[in-house]
Design a protein around this nucleic acid. Structure first.
Lengths: 153, 153
DNA sequence: GTACATTAAATGTATGTACATATATTTGCA
DNA sequence: TGCAAATATATGTACATACATTTAATGTAC
């Protein structure tokens, strides 16, 4: 990606109705751009981004189990289908799923040793990825976080 | 959405490894948040976001036709499948598709009168949506655009 | 204690994304 | 001319998203 590629050039649409319209497009585009880079890096570990995020939540709970509800609460995308993401992780033996003894409607989900080991293996790559934002100074990153939080108010 | 909902609270994850890590999460989360709001507003018009974006590009070309390649060039997500989005629009008779006479590999795609009329109908809603970013001042929106462009350099 | 609502998760369906592959057409060049 | 490479699009597959519906377990009112 070349230097100073403005959003106007990226999507070859030179005029926006407003700076607000442009910011919306810019946000969606940039998030997609980031996710694409992440997904590519994750591919060699045979994990998708949502699968990785669920694993991370489970590690945060470990050794306590998580329910599907807890996963949904903590996932970035609240409406995604946690059940089916857990399906894939279970098939890869990265998590276990068991009916919760105290509430048989719920399911206790735990990360396995293999799951923990995989996260460990991925750590250097994840840190590498974080450097992708180093185009921004510390102060600029803080400013970005401030603006995004304010935008959603 | 309540006032001053920081990303830490939104996803109930109080500590990030770095401000950079937080910015990444914040970006992806905020983009999803915006898209969810847009998608909800579009639903009553029976259009998805990508379908709407393709229609907009076609209106920009009207009355000249667009090819699938041109759509891909201008779409936010370059790897999405323009062919199949056009399929859906064609099924709703919002666009026409015809083999290009001068290059029979290519396909000429045009927005129909019904398509133009639909975009017209949606205009007030779209303007309404743009107000979603009015939490930010003009200066802040410019700053946001600057930071996002720089981030992708 | 049965009836009804609520809750937790799973399932179904339509759509979109990411990527590989296939098909048809055109171009370039030996 | 003839044939390989490039081009334009379509198709196939795995996964995820968005949302409605279903199934099972639990809670609650009467």
């Amino acid at each position: 990606m070349s230097q100073s590629m403005r959003i106007e050039d990226e999507i070859k649409q030179p005029n926006f109705q407003s700076e607000y319209q442009k910011a919306y497009i810019n946000l969606v585009y940039t998030a997609g751009w980031l996710q694409l880079r992440q997904a590519a890096a994750f591919k060699e570990f045979n994990l998708t981004l949502p699968q990785y995020n669920v694993l991370r939540i489970l590690r945060g709970q470990h050794p306590r189990p998580a329910t599907v509800n807890l996963l949904i609460e903590r996932m970035l995308d609240k409406t995604s289908n946690a059940s089916r993401i857990v399906d894939k992780l279970e098939a890869k033996q990265l998590v276990t799923r068991r009916v919760c003894p105290s509430n048989r409607r719920a399911v206790d989900i735990c990360i396995t040793e293999a799951g923990l080991a995989l996260l460990e293996t991925m750590q250097p790559m994840v840190e590498q990825q974080a450097h992708g934002l180093r185009q921004l100074s510390d102060q600029e990153v803080e400013q970005l976080n401030y603006l995004l939080d304010k935008l959603r108010d």
